[in-house]
């Protein structure tokens, strides 16, 4: 009985029409259908945040959303950050501040940070922590990630 649903998505500015099953998560569509494997799967229960993407300006866990639910949405993934002009200030800040170790949580961290800065370009340290509280990292102890977001925010202001 499992039916298919046709869905239109705008991902990183590009329009896609995909056919998904009723059980397909946004995470699966991004990784398997669109081959955007930058978005990672770490727990499948909305806990680790490695699959965080931006859906209609909000950071969400793409493992917690059925693709069929977000028909017509605008989605940003980590692949959408770098442009012809080069790396996004957040990406640069992550590199400059040694905020990357194994790199598996990095795409999700970047997405949560981007959603924050889009909404609040001058966040306090506490606001940064709240924005990233749903992104687990086992390598960095988070300090250099906070440093990076603060640096990107300062750059944002200029």
């Amino acid at each position: 009985m499992m039916d298919k649903v046709n869905v239109e998505l705008t991902v990183n500015g590009e329009k896609y029409e995909v056919e998904v099953t009723a059980k397909e998560r946004l995470l699966d569509t991004l990784r398997k259908q669109l081959k955007l494997t930058g978005t990672k799967e770490g727990c499948s229960v909305g806990e680790c945040g490695a699959c965080t993407v931006i859906v209609d300006d909000k950071a969400v866990n793409s493992c917690m959303v059925l693709t069929a639910q977000v028909d017509g949405s605008k989605i940003i993934t980590v692949e959408g950050l770098e442009s012809k002009r080069g790396l996004h200030p957040l990406q640069k800040a992550f590199i400059d501040n040694q905020a990357v170790q194994c790199g598996f949580c990095t795409p999700g961290m970047l997405m949560s940070a981007l959603a924050l800065l889009n909404e609040n370009p001058d966040p306090s340290k506490e606001e940064i922590k709240t924005a990233l509280e749903g992104n687990l990292c086992r390598c960095t102890g988070y300090q250099q990630i906070i440093d990076a977001v603060e640096a990107a925010a300062a750059e944002w202001g200029n």
């Binding site: 990784r31 494997t37 990672k40 993934t77 590199i95 970047l110």
Partner: peptide, 18 residues
């Protein structure tokens, strides 16, 4: 700077599941 940071901040780094 880390020599493997670029691919990790752009999503280009391929992990096993990718």
């Amino acid at each position: 700077k880390r020599v493997d940071a670029y691919e990790k901040v752009t999503g280009k780094a391929k992990f096993g599941a990718d």
